[in-house]
């Protein structure tokens, strides 16, 4: 990329930020959008500031205080080892967000690249990439996850690899179909008639058209990834103890459900809240950006 192109993008920035701000205002005007945005901000802040907010060291064992109900000292009670569940939920949220944001981010970049190549490139490349995507998609996610875990052993990295591999085809397919619709559009032909080359058309003209819907799709995938992480951790196939994760909190609580219901409630509610938050936000973003669903101009 030449210096002039970089400066070209720099001059576009103000307009772009203005648009982001305008879109955000429209999201906040809808009750569900505002709720989703609030929940997401809440989860983000509590995950980022987990160490600051957590009153206890999340892995500190205090066996005398095990399985306590919520109290002024332990806001969400304690688990079977006497660990403070409130602190564990906060730190576990950071892991959930780390897994979802990092793996979705990686899947997004790879899916976008492959999708652009498949959509704009020659047909044989398109066909082989589609074959690859369809093969990956045809595995049930959980079966695939269990197979990968069996091969590589349970860890956070394994969970992330599973998420990346299963999400790439979703993004790739979407980008491909959008690119194919765009590549015969008249403005692309106009650009080609103006002498624009392959990379210029992809970067300047197709990418900005594709990236909006893709980001919305990704934001709606975050809860799905969080549930995969929680699910695998619940099955003992994800995060290894003693690392706190919403899934392991649920799993531990499940074993002692006859003694106390609090660990299950404390582990389940953040999963529900985060899922709802990202889903609401994603849906209202889609409404804002999809002109067909837009209620007002």
């Amino acid at each position: 990329m030449s210096a002039t192109e970089i400066s070209a993008q720099a001059t576009q920035m103000p307009a772009t930020w203005q648009n982001v701000w305008r879109a955000l205002k429209r999201v906040l005007r809808e009750p569900l959008g505002a709720l989703g945005f609030g929940l997401v901000m809440f989860v983000l802040v509590s995950a980022i500031g987990a160490d600051f907010f957590a009153p206890f060291e999340p892995n500190k064992i205090d066996i005398r205080a095990k399985l306590q109900p919520p109290s002024a000292e332990h806001y969400l009670g304690t688990d079977q080892l006497g660990r403070d569940i409130y602190s564990r939920v906060l730190v576990g949220g950071r892991i959930a967000l780390k897994v979802s944001l990092v793996s979705i981010g990686i899947a997004l970049v790879i899916g976008l690249t492959l999708g652009l190549i498949a959509g704009y490139g020659p047909r044989w490349l398109d066909n082989s990439l589609m074959l690859l995507f369809d093969s990956v998609r045809s595995f049930p996610t959980v079966m695939f996850a269990l197979a990968v875990v069996t091969l590589f052993g349970p860890s956070l990295t394994t969970v992330m690899i599973v998420v990346i591999v299963t999400q790439i085809p979703i993004y790739g397919r979407m980008v491909r179909s959008q690119t194919q619709a765009l590549r015969d559009a008249e403005f692309i032909l106009a650009e080609r008639a103006m002498g624009a080359g392959f990379f210029r058309i992809i970067a300047m003209h197709i990418l900005p058209n594709v990236v909006g819907p893709l980001l919305i799709l990704a934001s709606m995938d975050i809860p799905f990834v969080i549930t995969i992480e929680a699910g695998l951790s619940f099955l003992g196939m994800g995060v290894r103890p003693p690392t706190p994760s919403w899934g392991t909190i649920l799993n531990d609580g499940y074993s002692y459900i006859y003694n106390t219901p609090w660990p299950v409630i404390a582990g389940g509610i953040p999963v529900i809240l985060t899922t709802l938050g990202f889903t609401f936000l994603g849906e209202s973003l889609r409404d804002v950006f999809d002109p067909k669903l837009r209620k007002e101009i």
Partner: peptide, 19 residues
Amino acid sequence: RGTRISMVFQDPMTALNPV
């Protein structure tokens, strides 16, 4: 293309990048 020969298209509604 674009320097010595340029082109104007039929439909001005679709000949510009909307985004």
